[in-house]
Simulated assay, not measured.
Amino acid sequence: MQISAAALLAVVALSVILGASSDGDYSSTVAKVKTVKGKKLCDKGWECKGWSKYCCNLTISDFFQTYQFENLFSKRNTPVAHAVGFWDYQAFITAAALFEPLGFGTTGGKLMQMKEVAAFLGHVGSKTSCGYGVATGGPLAWGLCYNREMSPMQSYCDDYYKYTYPCSPGAEYYGRGALPIYWNYNYGAAGEALKVDLLNHPEFIEQNATLAFQAAVWRWMTPIKKSQPSAHEAFVGDWKPTKNDTLAKRFPGFGATMNLLYGESVCGQGDIDAMNNIVSHYQYYLDLMGVSREEAGPHEVLTCAEQVAFNPIKPAVTASS
């Protein structure tokens, strides 16, 4: 029997509700601590559960609260937005809780943690924005305007994956979510990781904000290829570039996250609008979270303007002898 995405995630949402105080404060958690083989491990209940070293740090709700979410996405529920009433703080925190024991928003000290949340949401805001140059509040205030592609030109079914991620009859795999998912193989992989049948029911993503955020954080935390870092690892500095990476001008930082998530569609082309838009959202969110823009690093770290793509669509052109 199939269980709807809403029902499947209700248990997680309920744990958040029970873990919060009656006034809606999600930050009140008591840490359990133990030492295993000389390493300190913690469990903070609903938000960071499972005896992890990362749970000994601040959790996201300790430094990023409802009013900050509202500031970052201040125009998402205006009448002209396309996903009014869909996205909210609780959905984000509930989704993040699944990955905080793995280091999402819980790696390093408070500054790094705030920067990672701003970086992740910078991608989200830029990919779901309906802001434009003269939009009320400025073009960067309109993140989370969408939860789906409005006018898909195709169903995004790639028959090459018919044995691993076969397209479900009638299903359409157009862009949905906080970091929009496209194609049957991406829905299939995300569904396997989140234990939700997204291959047969891709529509679940646009029906449940917690699931939509979970899929986005999963993409942030998961390498596209085993030989490569995740966006998370590249951002927090857990990734150590190889000599080839250095020659390709790939360095840990926000620029590398764009490279890993979008490749040559935004990277390696100089300071193009597509790249600058994502960077601007990140910087705008840093401002609103009270973090200096200087903390984002120099141009070669902040951007991917000169980086060679990790996963080029076309093979590199070499000079003939």
Score class of each variant (00 low, 15 high):
21 S>I: 07
22 S>Y: 12
23 D>Q: 11
23 D>V: 06
24 G>R: 09
25 D>E: 14
25 D>T: 13
25 D>W: 12
25 D>Y: 13
26 Y>A: 12
27 S>N: 14
28 S>L: 14
29 T>M: 06
30 V>A: 09
31 A>C: 07
31 A>R: 09
33 V>Y: 03
33 V>L: 02
34 K>S: 08
35 T>A: 07
36 V>Y: 09
36 V>M: 09
37 K>W: 10
37 K>Y: 08
38 G>K: 12
40 K>D: 11
41 L>N: 05
44 K>I: 00
45 G>L: 10
45 G>I: 05
46 W>Q: 03
47 E>D: 05
48 C>L: 06
48 C>H: 00
49 K>M: 05
49 K>W: 02
49 K>V: 00
50 G>N: 01
52 S>A: 09
52 S>Q: 03
54 Y>R: 01
54 Y>Q: 01
55 C>P: 03
58 L>I: 00
59 T>L: 06
59 T>V: 11
60 I>E: 03
61 S>L: 03
62 D>L: 00
62 D>Q: 02
62 D>A: 01
62 D>W: 08
63 F>D: 05
64 F>H: 04
65 Q>D: 09
66 T>Y: 11
68 Q>T: 05
71 N>Y: 07
75 K>G: 03
76 R>A: 12
77 N>W: 03
77 N>D: 15
78 T>H: 07
79 P>Q: 11
81 A>S: 15
82 H>Y: 08
82 H>F: 07
82 H>M: 02
83 A>H: 10
83 A>F: 10
86 F>A: 07
86 F>L: 07
87 W>V: 14
88 D>W: 03
89 Y>E: 14
91 A>K: 08
93 I>W: 09
94 T>M: 02
96 A>E: 12
96 A>T: 04
97 A>I: 06
97 A>P: 03
98 L>G: 01
99 F>D: 06
101 P>K: 02
102 L>K: 12
102 L>R: 14
103 G>R: 06
103 G>C: 04
104 F>K: 04
104 F>A: 05
104 F>T: 05
104 F>Q: 03
105 G>S: 10
106 T>L: 04
106 T>N: 07
107 T>K: 04
107 T>E: 10
108 G>D: 14
108 G>P: 12
109 G>I: 07
109 G>V: 09
110 K>I: 09
110 K>A: 14
111 L>D: 14
111 L>H: 02
112 M>I: 04
113 Q>M: 11
113 Q>P: 13
114 M>N: 04
114 M>E: 15
114 M>R: 02
115 K>F: 03
116 E>F: 07
118 A>N: 14
118 A>S: 14
119 A>K: 00
119 A>R: 00
122 G>M: 05
123 H>M: 01
124 V>H: 00
125 G>N: 10
125 G>C: 07
127 K>Y: 08
127 K>M: 13
127 K>R: 10
129 S>Q: 10
130 C>G: 03
130 C>Q: 12
